[in-house]
Design a protein around this nucleic acid. Structure first.
Lengths: 117, 117
DNA sequence: CCATTTGCTACACTTTTAGTAGCAAAGCTA
DNA sequence: TAGCTTTGCTACTAAAAGTGTAGCAAATGG
């Protein structure tokens, strides 16, 4: 993989020239499908092709890059059952989970706004 | 703006053909600098150029696109003091905030791993 | 007036992602 | 052991997104 593009704490990333951890995480999670992959893997180890399906046919190129990045970041790992979240990955998921509820609420307000014809 | 690219609940987005709210949010926040902008605006209305500076000279093209998207999504708005988070935006920030602490912890583990020479 | 600041658009360029094809390795199955 | 399937990719081309610089119109301030 192109190591230049691996978001690493202390190294310049998209969002912080000094590599502030929060910005590194934003860069990492901000890449396409990263959060979707984490979401899918929670309590649910999966194979490459299964992840691809779940992520609505994400191209293998992108999936492969994301997986390598997330493995290097210590958020996922390969097990006998396929790809799975590490403990750190599970912890991160727990922090992201409240977004699920919030987003449904947000979506409701959103449609109300658009209906004000 | 290219309305085709505005992530909207119920509409297909990168991540969900049925527009699942959580995936819509992922698409929205996943775009470059979106989370950085929200982070910066918390309790801190700001002008276009100030945001640009804070985001380490994000190009005006991208910033403008992000702002329009986030405004359409109801997360930020224009006030007399410049761009600012809406109530919904502030709520979202509160959910994202715990990531700050987690990420610092994560960064520590990260450097420990790389030092195992 | 004239100079600044602000919010942006245009444009050319680079990076990232998508989409398709296909192949090597591992695991059946007979 | 030959053939089929599944899995985890790589290669390649095209499209989309982001970058970086220049600069302009509107508002603000002397």
């Amino acid at each position: 993989m192109d190591l230049e593009s691996q978001p690493t704490p202390g190294q310049p990333v998209r969002g912080s020239k000094t590599g502030q951890p929060i910005m590194v995480i934003f860069d990492l999670l901000g890449r396409n499908w990263a959060m979707g992959i984490i979401w899918h893997l929670t309590n649910n180890p999966s194979t490459f092709r299964k992840i691809q399906e779940y992520c609505e046919n994400i191209s293998p190129t992108t999936l492969n890059k994301r997986l390598k990045e997330l493995i290097m970041a210590g958020l996922i790992e390969r097990t006998l059952n396929g790809y799975a979240l590490t403990n750190q990955g599970e912890e991160l998921f727990k922090l992201l989970q409240p977004l699920g509820k919030w987003s449904r609420n947000w979506a409701d307000h959103y449609s109300q706004k658009s209906n004000k014809t």
